[in-house]
């Protein structure tokens, strides 16, 4: 049995509703430490990660610009929002991979932030959880929570279908191969890198 639900094939379009956040969203806000005790493989317990995804964000700072909108509503374990829009330094703080995992379990497919903390970024890519796009624009000031978005992965653009505007995204660069493979293991298998080191 697969522990993680990976992207089965690389679709070129990701469409979904926006959930907008501010800057410096750290991993304690993405999944508070008290919930890290649940198993990441038992399907029932895994749901808890969806339930508590982004539950550490102070209520008024979640679902901008209005705020007060939870990512996952009371009693649910998946979110109606699949594209997260945020400011700089998303995923800073502790190295917990439970963070991108919980976003994935809740149903997030992609994040678009001005920048990421290194460990979180690596985790998203190497674990094949969510696709971390960067943007040079402050999209979290332009996109509203609930807007319908469409990411074109071939052309590195995002279109706000609700407002009818398109923005450029930064290309994924050298990690695109790992993203396309669906994670570091898939990538390594394809490229024959899984052998033990001699060191």
């Amino acid at each position: 049995m697969k522990l993680f639900i990976k992207l089965t094939h690389m679709e070129s379009i990701i469409q979904g509703k926006a959930y907008v956040l501010g800057k410096n969203i750290d991993t304690d806000q993405i999944i508070p430490a008290e919930h890290l005790v649940y198993s990441l493989s038992n399907p029932e317990e895994v749901k808890m990660y969806g339930k508590y995804a982004l539950s550490g964000v102070p209520l008024e700072q979640g679902g901008l610009p209005e705020g007060g909108i939870p990512f996952v509503s009371e009693g649910a374990h998946t979110s109606p929002y699949s594209i997260i829009i945020a400011g700089p330094n998303f995923g800073c703080g502790s190295s917990r991979e439970h963070a991108p995992f919980s976003l994935k379990v809740a149903g997030a497919r992609a994040i678009i932030a001005e920048s990421y903390a290194r460990i979180f970024y690596r985790n998203c890519v190497d674990g094949g959880f969510v696709i971390p796009y960067e943007t040079s624009q402050q999209l979290n000031k332009l996109i509203l929570t609930g807007d319908e978005l469409s990411i074109d992965m071939k052309n590195n653009t995002i279109t706000n279908l609700t407002q009818n505007v398109t923005y450029q995204l930064r290309p994924l660069g050298s990690v695109v191969d790992i993203v396309q493979a669906g994670g570091i293991f898939e990538y390594a298998r394809k490229n024959d890198l899984m052998a033990k080191s001699q060191a």
């Binding site: 502790s94 190295s95 917990r96 460990i119 690596r122 985790n123 190497d126 570091i184």
Partner: peptide
């Protein structure tokens, strides 16, 4: 994430996630 603490010893220390750690466990 605080694996960087060990840099005090003139070495490279850095934090990673579980997938990366599992990859190291198998391959070094």
């Amino acid at each position: 994430s605080h694996t960087c603490t060990s840099g005090a010893f003139g070495m490279f220390g850095s934090g990673i996630g579980n997938t990366d750690a599992a990859f190291i466990l198998g391959t070094g």
